[in-house]
Design a protein around this nucleic acid. Structure first.
Lengths: 134, 134, 134, 134
DNA sequence: GTGGTCTAGACCACT
DNA sequence: GTGGTCTAGACCACG
């Protein structure tokens, strides 16, 4: 999950999504300090103000908190992170259903595709390692 | 499914995807005549050459065929369309699984989300209308 | 109640208010010696002349008195202190009523809020926050 | 309630407070259109970005909503406005209690002051000049 | 015209 | 050094 900012949506929204993912996936563990605004801005190649705006959004969601002069840390409230993780998953699932619906598949058929993918993937899947688990 | 072209990937690829979707979803039924290159190019706001390239791709996949003087028509081979539809669905399913995997969910958990979404959607539905159905 | 000097009103007026509060709240008890002008000026980060002016005001109100060579002491007239305390309280109450009036509440409604606050405050108190949010 | 921006707190916070007051006090009635960002910025003598930030806060609180290209309107949800009004009042009451507490008054004594003010104010109220305020 | 976004650069308070 | 705030100026999409 690296910076992959397009121009079709507000940069800061995409930054929020990326950082959100880093938090739920454990790249930035609960309670840990995240890089400074300036560092992140440089890393993402955006203006520090833009990064600041994204971080303000995350703080509003109480995913991070600010210690003046010492930086920002990820919330230690793991239940909040977990709940975010769930809501992202639900969102992705809904998007998936919409796409499949546009293709003309109903819920039963979608379930079949999912079942097939879940079974078949055991062999090839290859890439990712499931970290979180339950 | 309207024209929604981004600049992050080749335009013609995105056009192919859009037209492909129109065919499998029945917007352009089997055997029907599709609009002219000029019309489609104008509709999508792209250069006719770009549209032509996309259509050539579709023709190479034998999803459309060219009749000199009468334009291009969608293939009447419904099994070919159906198979395309399936492969797109499998592709989308795989993408969905990868995203859920990045979030840290395993196959069983994904199945739970899908089940929940399939059950819950009966009431509210949002915007989209499922066309095909069973 | 620490030094918290703004620039929107004369500094010496704010100093008078702060010292006044220290006297009525017992930080500087009746009859006690208060720090020297130099000390107070250094503590508040203002010019000694400014502090001197503020102390002169307090002396004019007969809240403090000067003993050559031994410094300044708080008045021992507790009734005077008490009366000051009352007048400050009345002033604050009036300000409170004005604010509530701007919000559109009448006296009865204000009384309700006060009653509710008096009852409920036993638990938390502490650090209210009401800023923007962002 | 005019623009009275100090430098001791973030401008945008003070703007939020001012606009919030205009909404609860009916200067901007429910459902009405508020001046444009640029107008408000000029009126308040701040950069349009600063005003924009304040308005974004208000929108986040769902006190106003945006109609792209046509401007912003106050929410029609009067209950939300009412609830805001109440919470501001509670906030002011708490502040009042803290100040009175610093003076050394307990809840019963505060109640006495309030009762006295409520009774006495019927006559004069008009033209007091309290400088402090803050 | 409207609001929305982004950059660049500056200053501040705090430790 | 950290984060927070503000200004100035620009560009965009939408009607």
């Amino acid at each position: 999950m690296t910076w992959n900012l397009k121009e079709d949506r507000p940069i800061y929204v995409q930054i929020v999504e990326t950082l959100r993912m880093r938090i739920v996936s454990g790249v930035y563990p609960p309670g840990s300090r995240i890089p400074s605004v300036r560092e992140l801005a440089a890393e993402a190649g955006v203006n520090p103000n833009t990064m600041q705006r994204a971080l303000a959004d995350l703080e509003r969601m109480e995913l991070i908190s600010t210690q003046r002069t010492t930086g920002k840390t990820v919330t230690e409230d793991e239940s909040r992170i977990l709940s975010l993780k769930e809501s992202i998953a639900e969102e992705e699932t809904k998007i998936y259903f919409v796409k499949m619906g546009e293709l003309g598949f109903d819920h039963r058929q979608i379930a079949d595709f999912v079942k097939k993918a879940a079974d078949g993937e055991n062999n090839e899947i290859g890439g990712y390692t499931l970290m979180g688990g339950e």
